[in-house]
Amino acid sequence: MGSEIKLKKKDFQSDQDVRWCPGCGDYSILAQVQKSFAELGVNRDETVIISGIGCSSRFPYYMTTYGMHSIHGRAPTFATGLKVSRPELNVWVITGDGDSLSIGGNHLIHAMRRNVNLKILLFNNRIYGLTKGQYSPTSETGKRTPSTPLGSVDNPFDPVSVVLGAGATFVARSIDTDTKHLQEMIKRAHAHKGTAIIEIYQNCNVFNDGAFVQITNKDAKEEQQLRLVHGEPMLFAGGTKGIRFNQLGVPEVVEVGEGKTSLDAICKHDETMDTPAYAFTLAQLRYPDHPTPVGVFRAVSRPTYDDAVNEQTQRAVAAKPSADLSSLWHQGEVWEAE
């Protein structure tokens, strides 16, 4: 264990030149992961980062951990095989919005359903960066790109809603430039046992600059972001506004204060709610009608796939101490020929 020497952020930086465009949001995400790993005392030799294909998926090359840059959309499959066979390893998946929600949509939902003990960072820039700017499954309807000069006609996915629907046990959202918050979310994901996914709003300054600016820019931030904190009332705009659920369970924005809605009526966030319906409802809050929630939507505990498989194995081994090649071969009717 190399964790006796305190690691620094730079201990996680590989000697490879980082090749993202200057100004790309990926730089900050890389830095926050490196910083958080250093602060967590993550053991580089016991960590594996597996990515798909996309700008974001170059990530493993820039880290000093073990890594695999795999194929488009399939990173969760490699990670699942690795984690099941080596449950003691710390396995992270890096993916983009196209990687995880178009070509890899199937693997993403099955990773959630199984609850494999993986940490997934979904870099959502709402665009295909690496292939030069086509619209992605998270792009807003009407998006004009080289492949949709008339504007896209399909409805976008909300990644948080998708994974909640697939049974995710830990779901969070953060922002590339919000370094403190992002570090906190990375640490929370690391601590979670089971699949943990963080949707990270990431700016692609070349093909989709300002995709999140209405939510992230300094002036809008207070009004447009709803910070989810477990056990705390859902307030925003400096505490002057809050979220209340009406009788139908539909969240509404209300003004809070004297002569307005009282603080008691504001919902207190509970990330541990058993039903995913609550988190799903929160995930429907979005610009421009509502503040966009950032933080942990859901953190619940469920047995993990890798544990379940390995417990079965231990039981099978205990039940059959005589298992050896000879007993494997001599099954069924055996006869002797002289």
Binding site: V48, I50, M68, S70, I71, R74, P76, T77, F78, A79, T80, G81, L82, K83, V84, S85, R86, L89, N106, H107, H110
Partner: peptide, 12 residues
């Protein structure tokens, strides 16, 4: 996914 998981295991 089957091929991916097998390769992931081999990596491990």
């Amino acid at each position: 996914a089957a091929a991916g998981a097998a390769i992931g295991a081999s990596f491990g």
